[in-house]
Every structure is written in structure tokens, then in C-alpha cells.
Computed example of a mutant assay.
Amino acid sequence: MTTILITGASAGLGAEMARQFAARGNDLALCARRLEKLEVLKAEILAAHPDRRVEVRALDVTDEDAVFEVFHAFADDFATIDRIVINAGLGKGAPLGTGRYEANRETAMTNFVAALAQSEAAMEIFRDQGRGHFVMVSSMSAMRGMPKTMTTYAATKAGVAHLAEGLRTELHGKPIKVTVLYPGYIESEMNDRSENRNPLLVSTEKGVRAMVGAIEREKATACVPSWPWAPMKPVMRHAPLSIFKKLI
């Protein structure tokens, strides 16, 4: 039985990961800002899988001290944390230079600086245990600089991918594994208010099934769902700018 810690687990991709991992026989340590939503999710999971163990704690990942406290409290609860999924994130943003610095700063602090704190706390646990599986949720937007409202978001997702890749280089050949996920368009709280539904958008359940499958296979990197995002990866990275702008 595997114990999995998931941040940003109260809704969207995090909550669906919790449901699917529980269905596959895993115990869960779930944290997010909204404790009441975590309690509802815990009750739902235990009703479906009464033999699972689910612990929940409130956590604002931008509170750096709390990140370390909560991660280590979960480690004390379970004695061992086998896998940590750094999933919490924010999708705010505005074109640079348009007077919305506060939105871009909030995204940068939540998606990168807070992810750094989570990475530090996760690696303290794994180094102490001598093993573990570190999972970073990035984005297909990390493949290349993105325009307008996506500029800061994409930059943060590139940054966290490089954090994880740096760990993988350091830990190569050791019993701490590293996975970086690059989700494409998956339905979540971050995009459910969009007026224009992207034709490539897949349901939360389908998208997360691809994420969970890649995590359980301990893939080094995975574009999820693999179609169309795996073949899109080199196109996004290397297409001439005139073509790339039409794609996005």
C-alpha cells in the first residue's frame, strides 16, 4: 500500500487524483486552503473505499512555515510518505505592462516560490527516508514562452519543471524517483469559467486518469493526455513563431 501526499487537493485535478488513487488502493494525505472541501472529499472517498486511510489538513502553500509543518505532520501521521504530488497552483495573469502586476506576482509566488517550499519540504522527507517519488505538475504551456495573460503562468510552469529536472539529474540512480507532468487542456477550476471551450479540452476524469497512469508508471516526463500533447511537444518548442502563434 502506498501513501500519497497531494497539495491543492480540495477541487479540480487534485481532488480527482485523490479519488482515483484511492480507488487504486492508496492511502492519502490531502491538503489545500479550503479544509471544509477536503472534509467533504474525505467523506466521499471513505464512503466508497472504507478500508482507505485519508488524513486532511488546511494549507495555504504561500505560507512557507506552514508548508514544512504540514508536510512533516503528515509524515508523522503515516511514518512513511511514498509519493508527494506538488499540484497546488494559480492561473491568474495579465499582459506585462498593463497595470496588473499584483495578479502576475500572485501567480509567480503561488506557482513557483510556493512550489519551491513544497519541494524543499518533500525532499527533506524523502532524504530522511532514503526513498520516495517526487511528482511535479507543470503544464504544456511550459514548452515555450506564452503571450498575454499566459506569460507569467507559463514562465512559472517552466520554472517548476526545471526544479524537478534538476532533482532528477542529482538523484539519478538513487531510490528517489522524479516525475514531471505536462498536462494539456483538462477541465478544472482554473478554466471552468472560460467562455470559449477549447476543442482540445478533456474532462477532469479523463485527464487525471492519464496523469495518474503516468505517475504510477513513474515516468520521468509525461505530456497528458498523451494525444494530442505528446506529438505537440516538439511542435510547440520548435515551430516558427508565425506558426506557433496560430496554434495558440
Rank of each mutant, 00 (worst) to 15 (best):
D60C: 03
D60L: 05
R52M: 12
G25E: 07
L46D: 02
L41F: 08
I45R: 07
E39I: 08
Q20P: 14
A29Q: 06
A11R: 10
R53H: 11
G14I: 09
I6C: 04
E44V: 04
D51G: 13
A66D: 00
A15D: 02
D63N: 15
V56M: 12
L59H: 10
G8E: 13
A23P: 12
A47K: 13
V54L: 03
D65E: 08
E16R: 08
N26S: 09
R57Q: 13
K37Q: 13
V56I: 15
C31K: 00
D63G: 02
E39C: 01
L5T: 14
D27T: 01
H49M: 02
L41M: 03
D65T: 09
D65L: 05
A32Y: 03
A66E: 00
A18V: 05
E36S: 12
T62E: 09
E55D: 13
M17W: 10
T2V: 01
T2H: 05
A22N: 06
G12D: 04
G14R: 07
V40S: 01
G14K: 01
P50F: 15
L5H: 15
E39M: 08
D27G: 06
D60T: 11
L5P: 15
A58L: 00
G25P: 07
A22L: 14
D63A: 08
D63W: 10
A66L: 00
A18T: 05
R24N: 03
N26G: 13
A58P: 00
D63K: 06
E39P: 07
L35K: 04
G12Q: 02
T3L: 08
A66P: 00
T3Q: 06
R52G: 09
V54A: 06
A47G: 15
T2S: 00
A15N: 04
A9D: 01
L5C: 15
R52V: 14
A11I: 03
G14N: 07
E16M: 09
M17G: 11
F21C: 00
R53F: 04
V40D: 01
R34N: 01
V61D: 04
K42C: 02
A29F: 09
L30W: 07
L35Y: 14
Q20I: 10
T3D: 09
D60W: 01
A11T: 10
A23E: 11
R33L: 11
T62G: 13
A29R: 04
L30E: 14
A58E: 04
I6W: 04
F21H: 06
T2A: 02
L59E: 14
S10R: 02
Q20E: 08
P50A: 06
A43G: 11
R24F: 00
V61Q: 07
E44M: 10
L46P: 11
V54H: 02
L59I: 03
L46S: 11
L59K: 06
A43T: 10
R34T: 11
K42R: 15
R19A: 06
F21M: 04
A58W: 00
A29N: 10
T7V: 04
A58D: 02
L5A: 15
E64N: 08
D27P: 12
A47P: 00
G8P: 08
C31A: 12
T62Q: 14
H49S: 06
